[in-house]
Design a protein around this nucleic acid. Structure first.
Lengths: 207, 207, 207, 207
DNA sequence: TATGAATGAGACTTCATTCAT
DNA sequence: TATGAATGAAGTCTCATTCAT
């Protein structure tokens, strides 16, 4: 199983307890990582926020990096679940894409601190963990690619398959942009406005 | 007075020597930062690569963060100078934009390790230094925004001013994407191909 | 709240352990400070004498200067407690003063290395800590001033209030002299003799 | 020769130049030592204040401690010369003593920062240099002891020889007190007042 | 399971002193 | 004689991780 739950070893036998505690751990860590970054946050601080002892904390993880993985995984799952949940896709591709963009960008906005964290600290993971996160990322891109591909089949979008993949990547990145270039964008644009403008640009580019 | 050269204090009196040595220092540090990241690179390693003693290194900077600033500043200047150098802009807006995109993406590709570093470690700078880099970044965006604005005036592009700014941001980020999402993109696309596809998407979206 | 115990932050939660270890720390540091001075003693040496790792040492203090504060505070408390303990003051002012002088000078002699340290290194403390020690010092002076003031009221001493304060300061300093000018004094005078001579001079000056 | 001038080796041949430069060096260093203490003052800072290069500075001394010695020696000589210069001693012992006390305390006051420095940093000298300074100090004490001894012979002072030595030490220390306990004394007493009170106490104690 | 004191390696930084020019 | 860049050892402090209780 390549399940993120079992990737990280633990001293604790009770699987449910592991999950509960790890969720608490993630909640404690994520705020600290957002505020100070991964490297500048100490395990002591996390334990304190976590409300447990250092020893207890280390019963649920093996290394500090494990915490980062749990956090990144959690953030990614949040986005992914919310986005999957919002997709109904019973309309035409154009409408489906508009909805997906709106929902995705809205999710990014809601958890923009976390998105930023994900974007900035993934590189601090070891190869294996990073690849795990990146695979998950690919699944998200695939959602947009699928919608576009449907549109192509339906002759709504006039681009080829190769372009579809890039277009899907663009959408992903334009969502993340809202968070990681907020210093440049959010001064001048409301989220609603941003969504509207980007959606128009995207749709024009696909047609 | 807000020159990046003079932002960082030095014990050394010979200004030319400072510049020479700092360039050497940047060269030494950048490879290490690319390979291991800023936080995991030690000053000792940098000094070794620099080819001088720790003490000598600290004659040219005050803190480890200063090195990161020098590196980021250098990378940004590289991109900026190359891009400015390549701009002739004697054609119509459409042609100018195509050329600028091609040149910018090509530059990013040439120094993609550095680009990646810049976009991943800027956040590790202190407020002041980070703002300095971000201001420089804004100047780059302005180049693309200008070209687009000209196109709007020339009635070549059919978008409003608000959209122009976002479109310019998009171009910037789509260039950086080539580096920071290379794991997703570079397997399947050559740079030439990537430029072609993105250029088409962009131009369609503006028309 | 201005307790010397709580002035210095610690990572350790067990308050009693803090006190025990800090006492051990003071014992380890004081000999080194006496032998080599504060600046020439390294934290590594202190840790070694302390019998624990550097990390453990820094669990009980924040900076090297904290150690000096603990040491100075400890020394001062020693003197102060011993002196307070010896004061009965049921005789006339003349007798009380003689006893106080004898006791104070004797205490100084017993811990003369520490006294010396206190009067040489207090200046190395930061403003706040130094003021704390100096305030404590003032309380000691007040003891002598009180006795003298009583003597004035009882018409035993024929000096005015202004003079009393200076006389009290003199007594303090003449006690400390025994330590800090030992190179000049202790060759030629026994403690007993020194006390006798100084007591006579003081009493004559007050009468 | 145990001359302080020749105690410290120099690369420079021209003896007069050595003396001139060393005087400048002392002037530069003393202010820094007063402000920051010996240990916290760097040789670089001294060289800068000195107006010469590090290399030049090291042509006139061998170690940083040499500078401290030069400074301490200079301060001591200042006090000593001024005091010797003011002594005429053509009156009776009582009057001579009063004048000497007044002059000595006044000198201490004039250079109280330097007195303090001398008192606090002598311990940082190596054994040899420290002894040199302490010997010089003894000569000063001898001045007061002489006056008192004369007074004893003249039957003006009613104390024995042993007591005379201690009384002389007391005077020295009471002068230094004005500097090193200024935080306790100078708030409440003017120099004039302090001299008056101490003189009275001393004279009463000797009579 | 849980605690938290202890470890110890290693991080960044400083600075007295030297030496090629 | 003068310069100041360079040395490198040593300093203080941090922190992920462990383990006795």
């Amino acid at each position: 199983m390549n399940d993120s739950k079992t990737r990280i070893a633990s001293n604790i036998k009770d699987k449910d307890l592991i999950n509960v505690r790890r969720q608490e751990l993630v909640n404690a860590a994520v705020e600290l990582f957002v505020k100070k970054g991964f490297h500048k946050t100490t395990v002591r601080e996390i334990a304190k926020e976590f409300g447990m002892s250092m020893g207890a904390l280390y019963d649920y993880i093996r290394t500090k990096e494990d915490i980062l993985f749990l956090v990144c995984d959690h953030i990614h799952k949040s986005v992914s679940e919310k986005l999957q949940g919002s997709l109904v896709g019973n309309k035409d591709a154009r409408e489906n894409l508009k909805n997906a963009i709106r929902d995705y960008f809205t999710i990014i906005d809601e958890i923009q601190d976390y998105s930023l964290l994900l974007y900035q600290e993934t590189k601090s993971l070891n190869r294996t963990d990073r690849n795990y996160i990146l695979s998950a990322e690919k699944e998200l891109v695939a959602i947009f690619e699928d919608i576009i591909t449907h549109g192509i089949r339906e002759k709504i979008f006039k681009i080829d398959r190769n372009t579809a993949k890039i277009a899907a990547e663009n959408i992903m990145v334009q969502g993340q942009m809202w968070a990681f270039r907020r210093w440049a964008i959010q001064k001048n644009y409301s989220l609603k406005n941003y969504i509207k403008i980007q959606t128009e640009l995207i749709l024009k580019s696909l047609t």
